[in-house]
Every structure is written in C-alpha cells, then in structure tokens.
Amino acid sequence: METLTPGGNSNKSPGAPAAEAEVGKRFKKQSFWRTALQQKYLYLMSVPFIIWAFVFSYLPLWGWTMAFQDFKPAKPFLDQKWVGFKHFVELFSDDRFYLALRNTLAMSVLSLVVGFIIPIIFAVLLNELRGIMFKRFVQTVSYLPHFVSWVVVAGIVTKMLSTQGGAINDLLVGLHIINEPIQFMAKGNWFWYIVTAADVWKEMGWNTIIYLAAITGIDQEQYEAARVDGANRYRQMWHITLPGIRTTISVLFIMAIGHLMQIGFEKQFLLGNNLVLEYSQVLELYALQYGLQMGRFSYGTAISIFNSVVSVILLFTVNGIFKRVSKESIM
C-alpha cells in the first residue's frame, strides 16, 4: 500500500518515493539489524525528531493521571488522592458539558463542510483563469485575511453586522429587503453561521494554496489529450483536475476530522456575548472556565482526555472508511 505524506502527492514528484520503496523491498528479507546498519544515517537523522515527539507529545500524557486524582498543586505525586472516575462522572452529569459539546460539534461540522468544499471550488476555478497576473492577484488578496488575528476579524465582523451603521444592515435596509436593522449578534441560533461565515472568509484563500499546488502537479498532457477528445472546460475540471487532487483532498479531509473536537475558542470567545452564550460556549472555553480558572486541574484534564479520545476514535474511523472505500489513507 502506498503511504502518503501529508500535503504531498504522488503525481508531483514520482521519482523519490518510488525509489525509496524499491530500496525497501530489496531489504525486506534481510534482518532488521542489517537494514538498520545500512541505513544508519537515516536512523540517526530521525533520532532528534523521535526525541522531540517523545518529549512533547508523549511525556505530557503522564499528566493524564491528574484526571483520576483530586490533584493539588505543589504536592508530590505519591501524596495525591486517587479518586477513580469521579471527575468523569461529574463531567458527564453536567448539562453545560453537553451544551458545549453540541456547540463544538455543530460549529466544527459546519466549518468542515463549508470550509472544505469552498476552497476546493475556489482552487479549481482559480486554476481556470488565464491571466497569470490576475490569478496571482486574486490568490494573494484571498489569503491575506489568514494573517489577520481573530481579535481584529471579530471587530470587523461585529462592526459589519452592527445595527448602527453596520454595512450589512445598511445594505439590506437600502435594498428594502428588511425594514428594521437586524440584531445579528443577539440571535443565538444565528451564531454558528456567523462564526462559520467569518471562518470561511478568513481561511478560504489560505486553504486554497495547497490545492493549487496539487493542481500544478497534474500532467498537462492529460488536459491536451482531453481537449483532443473534445472535452470542454467543465469536463476537464470534473475528469482531470478533481481526480488529480483527489488524494490531497482525502488526506486533508482525514486530518481535518482529527481536529473536529479542537476548534479552539478564540472565534467563539471574541464574537460571542452573554445573549448567545447557549450557542457560543464550546468545550475548550468550558474547560477553561470550569477547569483551569477555578484551579480544578483534575476536571480540566478529564475534559481534555475526553476530547483526545473522541478525536482519536473519529480519526481512526474515518481513516478506516477511506481505506476500505478508496484505498487511500494516512495511516
């Protein structure tokens, strides 16, 4: 089975991975140590990264023990009181947790669906542009918002949606679509969509870059052949461009699933207000307010364990499905 590196694709540089695979095959029958000796430089080169991953990704897992204790800071490990699943029981019996979970999943699924499809469409369309200067210009302009911090974006969004001189309301009233300005930011059930829209505006261009890179890797001869066969532009997009970046799409999709639970809280925190709390409270904010800010380290850890476990399950499920269906996976 072919293994893909994230973001890369086999069309782009077919030489290197293929050669490596061949080398791998040749050594398959020889003992592990023999191989290791022959590839000692490769192994040595990977050592710092293995140490890095171990120190920063695996050592902190030791902290998970906190979730099963009534953790008190500045006390030695052996003096901590073990309480079993107490914090998890408390977590699963708190209504606010389910509310936060609902909002987290709702907003992440929304942004996954919208924030995934739009950059692909945008990349494919951008690729069809003839004028190279214009294409570059559009691309640059579209990914600039990525570098604007959420604090500023939240300010822009609130101002745009304001009832007093907000551009959106002015426009809608001016076109006589509505009579009274709408209080966008006061409507709880709109909050998810406002966040998603802001997210798409900010990240669309940036997420397009990787697809554009993948598209440049597609062999131009395929297009020429298709044109000779009489395929129009839409046919070319559908039969050449999209299949050409399919592997990239699946890899990115699987990785995005892994981040479903970790949507951060800046957007929600900055755009939310007390009126829409029922829709803006997300898991990480909940962990911050009810865990860390109160010094309940154990409770916060329990939330984060729940988060990680769900993420891993999601990731493996989706990866497994992809493996079966499309023979493409990242693991």
């Binding site: 939240a154 300010g155 609130t158 101002k159 304001s162 009832t163 007093q164 209080q183 930011m185 006061a186 207000n273 007390n274 009126l275």
Partner: peptide
C-alpha cells in the same frame, strides 16, 4: 441602546 448587550467595550 439596542446594542447594549452585543457591543464590545471598544464600540
């Protein structure tokens, strides 16, 4: 002010 509960402090 209609925006009392939605406005940020800077507004």
């Amino acid at each position: 002010d209609k925006e009392t509960f939605t406005q940020k402090r800077d507004q």
